[in-house]
Design a protein around this nucleic acid. Structure first.
Lengths: 247, 247
DNA sequence: CCGCGTCGTTGCGCCAGCGCAAACTCGAGG
DNA sequence: CCTCGAGTTTGCGCTGGCGCAACGACGCGG
């Protein structure tokens, strides 16, 4: 192991994905991987191509998208450090179910099929851990299906923002900054609506003091306000509003 | 192994889920399970309860549903013989992500957490197989998200019917019968629409000779017609239509 | 500091699909 | 054969959200 390894090992360990592995397992896993770098807007792989590598992001952000039949893109999710993708590369003949594009300078570790297969069979804990991650993804996706089926646009956008806050939120002066470049269109593609509607909703929330947006940036000023909208609860009083109407 | 075992073993083997297991592994897996029976409309487990058992359906049909925030149900999927569910029972503290209700007389095998965990760690092939099933489920769910985000109601209903045809279709005189009790409301809950809209769409398709419906039953007479609608292609000529307007 | 491309906003017209209400009908169980 | 309740149909009015078009503005790179 060269000197950079410690860096990557601790990164691997920090993410929830590999917490169950012991030191030697982790080192073994790491030695079989190759590191890759991607510039902003470079694509890591495309939907439909034969899956070659199972990937774990070390640094940066990646946007996973699917192509709708009529050409518009649907965002499956964003990846950050510690997140894995392309589990399908474990199985022979699998094809990438989505396109992965770096939205920032990104580094990732990749495992080809044989090594990852060997790891899975050698360290059952590794497979069980992967199952857990997949189970969580299934749950998330079912939630999204439920939301798309039963909730209004504003609710879905609120949920998307809350989710992003949990995933890539960084506390700043004004509130919580979503630490990735995010356009109205991205948000629309995450929630099954249009960039126009997203724009209108965000403008409204900005007026209400719930969010503050700059170009490609969103800061959440009153997370609880968003949660209320997501859960369809009555609007809670913004802090500093003392005009008596609020019990 | 008592005499009934052969029955169940072959059923387990027939489903795609356990194909990779050898005889002894299969037998080992089977001996650790307990068999359960459920009457029509009986619930196997409820969303939110602590997950006790990982289940594989032997016979019958099960409806998996989630509850929307405002109380309406969303159908995740239907299970038939060979299908597994509640993979989350493998992990301590997991809760069922959905409610399972038998829509026919149903038998299932259940494994508690310890035995299934032991199996997974003892037979890595078992875990890898489970990962594959989960990967496929992820893909299916992503497809559903894409459909709900980008397609119109008629397309989504067509897709739901095509999917059901593949899963539980049985060839009959008139076409392909969807071999499970299926109301307009079920179909609405599968596609994120309302029973009214489903009724109107099905009426239209019945007029066009694409489907034939009876109470709680659907027969697909022209599968290709449905596929065309699902893919948003121009309507293909129904067989027997020779009135010259077609090309 | 400037220019330009990308991103964001907003007015306006429109329609797919919702959802109530009320009537109808199928078919299982007695 | 009848009954009854679950399932289905259909008319009607309404609206949330779409999407074009046109404009506005931010901020990066030169």
């Amino acid at each position: 192991m060269e000197s950079m390894s410690d860096d990557r090992l601790s990164l691997l360990r920090r993410g929830p994905r590999f917490a169950e592995l012991g030191d030697d397992e982790l080192a073994g896993a790491h030695e079989l991987a190759t590191e890759r770098s991607f510039a902003c807007r470079e694509t890591l792989f495309r939907e439909g191509e034969e899956a070659e590598e199972f990937l774990v992001v070390l640094a940066g952000r990646v946007k996973l998208t699917q192509l709708g039949s009529d050409g518009q893109e649907v965002i499956a999710r964003f990846l950050g450090p510690g997140d894995m993708c392309a589990a399908v590369a474990i199985f022979p003949g699998g094809t990438y179910p989505a396109t992965a594009e770096a939205v920032e300078e990104t580094r990732a570790l990749g495992w080809r099929r044989e090594p990852i297969d060997a790891l899975l069979r050698r360290y059952p804990a590794f497979a069980v851990r992967a199952m857990r991650v997949l189970s969580e993804r299934v749950r998330e996706l079912q939630d999204r299906v439920r939301e798309l089926s039963t909730e209004r646009v504003a609710q879905r956008i609120a949920r998307a923002l809350v989710r992003l806050a949990r995933q890539v939120g960084r506390p700043v002066e004004e509130g919580v900054l979503l630490d990735l470049p995010l356009t109205r269109e991205d948000l629309a593609n995450m929630t099954g609506t249009t960039l126009y509607t997203v724009s209108r909703v965000l403008t409204e929330w900005e007026t209400a003091g719930i969010v503050r947006t700059r170009r490609r940036r969103v800061v959440i000023r009153r997370p609880h306000g968003l949660v209320s909208i997501a859960e369809d609860l009555p609007d809670p009083a913004p802090p500093g509003q003392r005009e008596g109407s609020t019990t």
